[in-house]
Design a protein around this nucleic acid. Structure first.
Lengths: 206, 206, 206, 206
DNA sequence: AATGAATGAGCGTTCATTCAT
DNA sequence: TATGAATGAACGCTCATTCAT
């Protein structure tokens, strides 16, 4: 971050505009994909000039990084609110259902493949992504341990990895406008069953 | 199949040159991502001029489509060879292990996120991808039915969808240079167990 | 006079800040050349914002002009101190040696070619440069006349022109990091000899 | 040089255009200075599009390098033709006169300060410049040795350095539109006299 | 089957400058 | 005095594409 941008956003006007840019950038990424993501298009969508956009984000990479973190923050905020009422098992099923159902939304369906692709090619993106999934798995592992306190920390983390990865994979098949979208409820059912069986009766490696 | 320009001499004319271009294009996609994929770079890697490249593939989209199909064909060929010896259950576990272990390779790790992303934005890509997964699921569903003949066609296909999606999701976590690569064997173990349980004892929606 | 931001605390306000900017601008010119000289870089180096820099120097040309004069003033100040002790001939040799040796320094080596180039393209620079060389020649002509009072004013000025021009030319060859830097002493020797011969025995046009 | 440009200029049309670009680029450099030298302006002057310009010179640095070498080659060609008739001493005076008089021309007056400045900041320019002056000095040293065969190789080279540097310095004072242009003949006179004296009677360091 | 030449659009970035605060 | 915000122009460069050879 350039020194000259240190106190950018000091005025409310600037802060609002910055957030607006991030929203607009996210929309463009989701609508067009990263390979069609350009500063000119972001600027146009935001109703400002390219020069001004680059006043807020001196380099494209700065905007991309900030935008991804902006979206990721939304998901992280969701994780904190995710634990509801009922027994641990009920909570677990509720989480699974929430997360899988979320895949149906356009934002989730399109955003994550872009993130996965980007993280394979752009240094600096990987860390944000890994942090997010790390936090996600921690929430899962916590509930898993409450369901079966006999598991070790390592085992519950291993299960959390398996569950979260399995769920992510469905993005491609039951997401927004995806062919198996109508199978969402069945996926939730199969996932809940098999995940709970693994937690309670499976021989979890460890 | 030679992968790179190392065997350039082997691609002298016609179909060979075409295949050489496709190989080189795939390598570029995997090394740099689609947002860095350009005809100029492909031409340079292939040791020919842009004009000549466009003799073989008149438009960029033609090359991209052909290249994706080229790679997908490799995977489809693998599916046909995948069924080995032993009981259906042993075959199933072998398949799961093969497919999950394959995620560790650079090609698979990087290629699929690009494909998923592209299929969200470029018409014409989606069909190739869907066909591939369709064929993949058919192989799985076949074995599933052999393990538990009591399941309906629909149920076995549903399970195949769930299994394949779950496996794909691990690309992001246990793939080439991914942080949980060392968990691959444990993932195979948890997947095999829970998948088999679902096939044999689960209440598969139907 | 402190050269860089090291003593930034010393430049708190008003004239100090102005001088600090001028120092920093000179350093940038010398380090990067005029074609890489921008207000943004000066501002950053000076630890202030572009807006503030333009409070002191409303237009880029104002800063450039002031900066060049700032450096030129340093050289003019040197000229006033240049005349030392001894006979006129000893003084002359001392001056030649001082000036030629000064070419070895980075500041002189790099600054003057920038000045020469600029004076060819930017109106308003030429005058400052001409004034400086005028003053320089006056000092030389004065000593020349003392060595050979038989010369006319015109002749001594003509010699001063020839001597100063000859010396300036060595900037490109014996300057900072230049290939013939180690010849500096020999150049001083040849220059002193031939210049003195011209003053005393040559047929100076006039 | 990019591989894809290997056989550019294979057609006569391309070769002509390349030379035209170089001429136009030199004119722009001389008219406007390097800090106003842009690919867009070169393209416009050449009557082509920027894209086409960059087909011939993939990077700005390639154009600049080629253009400088193009101009330098002209001067080098002059050096080869410079030696005329008469005694070595007559030849020497003729060379001095030729070279100094050449400073009066706009091309020489403006081109060299740009070259000197550039060579201080852009790697790759320095070598071309050094090579040119090296060749220049070789011609001078040759004649010097013929005038006074008693000098060593080293001494004649040292004199050549001193003479050439001294002459170059006059660019700034007697060049095109420079204030002392009318002194050119007198400079030739003083230079010839003092240089010959140094060759024949001076104590050349060595 | 292959290259040379050219175009036009778009890219990320830098810049001098203006103006409100 | 000094910063934040914004503009408009220009920059070097990459690109897909077209066409003549």
């Amino acid at each position: 971050m350039a020194k000259t941008q240190a106190s950018q956003g000091a005025y409310k006007k600037g802060k609002d505009r910055r957030n607006h840019i991030l929203d607009v950038a996210r929309d463009l990424l989701i609508d067009s994909g990263y390979h069609n993501f350009s500063l000119r298009k972001v600027a146009e969508k935001a109703g400002i000039r390219v020069g001004n956009l680059q006043y807020y984000f001196p380099a494209k990479s700065d905007l991309v990084k900030a935008m991804l973190d902006h979206v990721i923050d939304d998901y992280l905020a969701d994780f904190d609110d995710i634990r509801g009422h009922g027994t641990p098992e009920e909570q677990f099923v509720a989480v699974i259902e929430d997360v899988i159902t979320d895949l149906n939304g356009k934002k989730t369906t399109v955003f994550f493949p872009e993130l996965w692709s980007l993280s394979n090619h752009e240094k600096g993106i990987t860390r944000s992504m890994d942090n997010m999934y790390q936090r996600y798995r921690e929430v899962l592992a916590e509930i898993i341990l409450e369901i079966n306190p006999g598991l070790s920390q390592e085992q519950s983390q291993r299960l959390a990895l398996f569950f979260s990865a399995s769920i992510e994979g469905h993005t491609i098949f039951i997401g927004y406008r995806k062919p198996w979208r109508k199978e969402t409820a069945n996926i939730v059912d199969m996932a809940s069953q098999s995940f709970l069986w693994l937690i309670k009766d499976g021989r979890v490696p460890g």
